[in-house]
């Protein structure tokens, strides 16, 4: 069962309603399905195709363009180590090797217990804090081997790692792979300005009246 659950389908419909054209919601919906299942399944893509009225081939076309979408199961924690230039200069490759050695897997793979996946990734926009890694897209700055071991240990034991975590508290908590924002946007019906229909939206009233 990896179509969206009824609750998630309701969320999906709310997301779709915020766009003038349903297909625009596709990437957020792929995230939603990944949040539900940990990865994006074929059944989920068929469901999303129905929801946004495109073919499954179009959904998979979009899905496979973006590297955050995993079509195979990955670890509960996806550890991304940036090795781009600013990080490489300050030891990212060593950190990556350490991580591979420590977890016994090469980058791109998942530990047999299904807990960790390591990825060698491009710039994560924390270049001044090199070397750095993210766990399920939560940042840890200026990480060395020892820090890495501590982070892994904490996660293994079900603790929120705090060492070198860039943000702590509820904002920085690490949910399992697939969950991004911890809060969803919600536009209350009585506050919504409404979508601007590309085929028929009129000139904005405030322009006309103020000009």
């Amino acid at each position: 069962m990896s179509r969206l659950t009824p609750e998630n389908e309701a969320i999906a419909r709310e997301i779709i309603s915020r766009y003038p054209k349903p297909k625009s919601a596709l990437i957020p919906l792929l995230h939603l399905s990944q949040e539900q299942n940990g990865h994006v399944t074929d059944e989920a893509m068929v469901h999303l195709a129905e929801l946004v009225d495109v073919t499954p081939a179009e959904v998979i076309g979009t899905c496979t363009f973006y590297e955050m979408f995993k079509r195979e199961p990955v670890g509960r924690y996806v550890v991304n180590i940036c090795t781009n230039i600013a990080f490489q200069l300050l030891g990212a490759e060593e950190l990556l090797h350490h991580a591979e050695h420590r977890l016994g897997i090469k980058a791109g793979n998942t530990t047999p217990d299904g807990l960790f996946t390591i990825e060698d990734v491009e710039c994560v926009a924390a270049c001044t804090e090199a070397p750095c890694l993210t766990v399920n897209y939560r940042y840890f700055y200026k990480v060395d081997g020892e820090d890495f071991d501590a982070i892994v240990e904490d996660l293994r034991n079900g603790r929120q790692p705090t060492r070198k975590a860039a943000e702590t508290g509820p904002d920085g908590a690490i949910p399992s792979h697939g969950t991004l924002a911890l809060e969803r946007q919600h536009i209350p019906a009585d506050r919504a300005a409404g979508n601007a229909d590309p085929d028929s939206a009129p000139a904005p009233v405030w322009l006309e009246q103020q000009a």
């Binding site: 074929d42 893509m45 068929v46 495109v54 073919t55 499954p56 081939a57 179009e58 959904v59 998979i60 076309g61 496979t64 363009f65 973006y66 590297e67």
Partner: peptide, 22 residues
């Protein structure tokens, strides 16, 4: 009007293909 084949993947790994079993 039958978008049943599509680019998949990105960059030099881009390929044309159908959705599995469709």
């Amino acid at each position: 009007g039958d978008p049943l084949i599509h680019f998949q993947g990105r960059g030099s790994r881009t390929e044309v293909n159908t959705f599995p079993d469709e």
